[in-house]
Amino acid sequence: MNCLYCQEVIDQPVTWSTLLHPVHTNHLCQGCRSELQKIADEICNKCGRSSNESLCPDCQQWLNSNDYQSVLIYNRSIYQYTSFMQEVVSQWKYRGDYHLISIFEKDIFEKISELYQSKSLTIVPIPLTRERLYERAFNLSLAIAEIIAMKTKMPIVQALERNSELSEKQSKKSRKERMATKNPFRLTKSLQTDILLVDDIYTTGMTIHHAAKVLKGAGSANIYSFTLIR
């Protein structure tokens, strides 16, 4: 069998666990596996990034913003956004190599249950715009949400829609501009439960906060988020 990412041959010890649970299969070679950097134990309590302060400067700013201070309880993630991860994401998301999701299944399975206190969450994946969804043919956030749902048995509800005109690239803007941008999300189903928002990457946090705000406004009490990468 070959490494899913670099095609290098890997020796896969066949055990009962790999036969019965394909999720436990090792999809990466040693080299690629060692490049995947997980987030260590010391994190920012709010956004879940590696940090030795319990609240990072970015999150401090979110807490100072009247609009967004109370919309999100916290975010948790598994991997750091290293340059290797950037390459993997570019093949996965932009080139559209859906299959790379298998690389992450095992870690999501092992980690997800311990991240949130509440056990009755509704999973809401961050949607793409209609055009983007057509172009990519799949939504990464939904793919991640499906793995979480498989493990936790929590329901997925696609309760949000994304407006294309308001969805410009966030990272090209200054922080102030970002905070002031119009919210691209719209509610399509109203939910009264606690919510777990799911996305692939948390970079500026704007996307998650926008989505959380819409859901909060519609009456959800507690909103958490999970992104694979922070």
Binding site: Q91, R95, G96, D97, Y98, H99, L133, Y134, R136, A137, F138, N139, A143
Partner: peptide, 19 residues
């Protein structure tokens, strides 16, 4: 490999060799 295609709403293959 397979993907759940949002264009045609089927699960079908794509080629990873020439991606």
């Amino acid at each position: 490999a397979n993907l759940p295609c949002a264009r045609c709403h089927n699960r079908h293959v794509y080629c990873r060799h020439c991606i």
